[in-house]
Design a protein around this nucleic acid. Structure first.
Lengths: 343, 343
DNA sequence: ACGATCCATGTAAAGGTTTACATCATGGGA
DNA sequence: TCCCATGATGTAAACCTTTACATGGATCGT
């Protein structure tokens, strides 16, 4: 029984002495089957070790039990914990997750579109902030989909993320409370909506503290470690230095810390730094980085839950789910240094 | 044409004015089809936007185009980069990867076994070092499979990993070259084969350096940060201290560094520390951790390549592929301190 | 010029499931 | 007692492919 080819519904039917239709019903709609029959069927299933052939089932139903998850970079440390939430929730519904990885290459995106077109996935989770299917993005017929972190630019797709404005606000408020007023914002505020919202949080915080717009220092950067470092170099060529750096994400913050360290400054004595995301490295920096935590596992879980809602009702209850970001206070923030204060 | 239900092979056949068999042949075995016909078919495919229904194809072929990847913890930072290699290689073969996550719970393992039994995966990649299917592990009929990092304990399955003995040897040799003789080995050497091989590398290195077995210090630990810290505490209750800590993995090393830091020691002035794996955090520690790098993306790529070999030939060329681990020299190792030398 | 061979194509079965519809038995109401 | 509703089960079609086998035409060798 562990040899030979796998048992089919027909084997079960023969042993239970019923028709295959009855077997199918006993499995999927047990209430439509007499108790005694159901018992026989269950026994037969146990004997044969039968499991439904998912291929056949999907073919008949016209819908698979897979969810495709597409991210620009699955090597991203931010990604793996989300995956945990996604996987757990999917599996609780009897679905599997299929993962894909575009590296921002539309060509690769198109290959996933083929997956979708060939009915291999019942739903789609997108990390890209944009439909990654190149020029076909507009015309593509997509299964129920949800975005993670950001709304999907060209898709009109519900999403799950964190309240970036509130998160950023928590970071500025901490800096303000410590006495900072010259706070630089470092990071991309254009390409990604999440980032521009963090910028909004920054502005809102400084507005509330009465710091005029003219005194704010904004530096662009694409969210990489390198960009943090570069932005810092630019800053040191100006005549005004901030007392604190509020970075759009942890990578940027790490770049800033490295740059500051290389110049011989001490954090937080000389400068305070905050990040956003709470990537795994954040707590291992010296000093440990004060940052805003994304509840990653929860985000994954709720994105998948939202997707299943879409899959059953066609009416989603929410079109945007924002989770609460938490301020994680570590050691990279203190009161501003006198040294640079008077500048 | 982007509305309505997706085109089937029959739609293509009708437009191209040929039979569905010819269409199928034009796609999969073009050499068996006349040039002119192939052209007509290709045009019809372009017009309809036809893509093969993977469900139907898999059903007919009795084999899907998915590879199941099962890891104990997909949130592990070691995991994501491997995933990149796995995914790229799989996709190059037209396969998708399905990921699963057991958390060492045999119950969850069993659910993946169902996936397998229902023909949803043509192959299996295992990270567990053990078949994760509980009591059914022995009798389960598995598709072609390959292990990553370690041979699969109860499976007789080929695997791809790193040469742990050689890697460990590189670490000890570095410490020896710096002048250390009292080198503690910290970490689990029993449950995981990879770990016990690292231990072998340690022993081989000390043998070569003529350090008698009696002078070696071995501490158990399960490979977590906490275990590194604990082992260190135990050590400080003894009367003999090593001058260097060779840790079975980076997590353990991080635990040791934290513990040493808490006791006010400086690394590498007072003690040297090495790790193994080169997890992302390693380079962000202060001091940055000297460790052995696992070529993760390459491991993933070659594991998947090996799997495809199994899938085509039934004779695998190799049953064990060991990649070369590199020594990554950072700042956690220096010559031994005088301070503890004379003890 | 004829039979053998080969090549391109078509016909139809098979793969395992779900489900609309048909069938049949049972029990209740009149 | 008869009819009808109800509930349990069976029959068969459909989902979309791939491919063994059949067919028919053309080509080649003698």
């Amino acid at each position: 029984m562990s040899t030979s080819s796998p048992a089919t519904i027909e084997d079960v039917a023969r042993i239970a002495q019923v028709s295959i239709a009855t077997v199918s019903r006993a499995i999927h709609t047990p209430e439509k089957v007499a108790n005694s029959t159901r018992l026989k069927v269950n026994q037969a299933i146990a004997i044969t070790g039968y499991t439904t052939n998912a291929m056949a089932r999907s073919l008949r139903l016209g819908r698979s039990n897979m969810i495709l998850v597409v991210a620009p970079d699955i090597g991203d440390p931010n990604f793996s914990n989300i995956l945990v939430g996604l996987e757990n929730e999917a599996r609780a519904h009897g679905y599997g997750i299929l993962i894909g990885h575009t590296q921002n290459d539309p060509q690769r995106g198109l290959e996933y579109l083929k997956f979708l077109n060939s009915n291999q996935a019942a739903g789609l989770i997108l990390f890209t902030g944009i439909l990654p299917f190149g020029h076909q993005s507009m015309t593509a017929r997509l299964p129920p989909s949800v975005g993670v972190f950001e709304p999907v630019y060209n898709g009109g797709i519900p999403y799950v993320g964190v309240d970036d404005i509130e998160g950023a606000r928590k970071a500025v408020d901490l800096l303000i409370a410590e006495g900072h007023r010259k706070i630089a914002f470092i990071g991309d505020s254009r390409t990604r909506l999440a980032y521009s919202r963090r910028r909004q949080g920054y502005d809102a915080g400084l507005d509330a503290a009465g710091v005029p717009a003219g005194e704010r220092i904004i530096l662009e950067g694409d969210g990489t470690i390198e960009s943090g470092r570069l932005a810092l170099e630019q800053l040191f060529m100006r005549d005004t230095l901030p007392s604190a750096f509020m970075c759009v994400n942890d990578q940027t913050a790490i770049g800033v810390m490295i740059g500051l360290g290389a110049r011989g400054y001490d954090i937080p004595t000389d400068f305070s730094v905050t990040g956003f995301d709470d990537v795994p490295q954040a707590s291992f920096m010296t000093p440990a980085l004060t940052t805003i935590r994304q509840p990653r596992t929860a985000i994954g879980k709720s994105a998948m839950a939202l997707l299943f809602e879409l899959l059953s009702d066609s009416e989603p209850t929410d079109t945007e789910i924002l989770l609460r970001p938490d301020l994680i206070v570590r050691n990279s923030v203190s009161a501003p240094s006198r040294r640079f204060q008077k500048r």
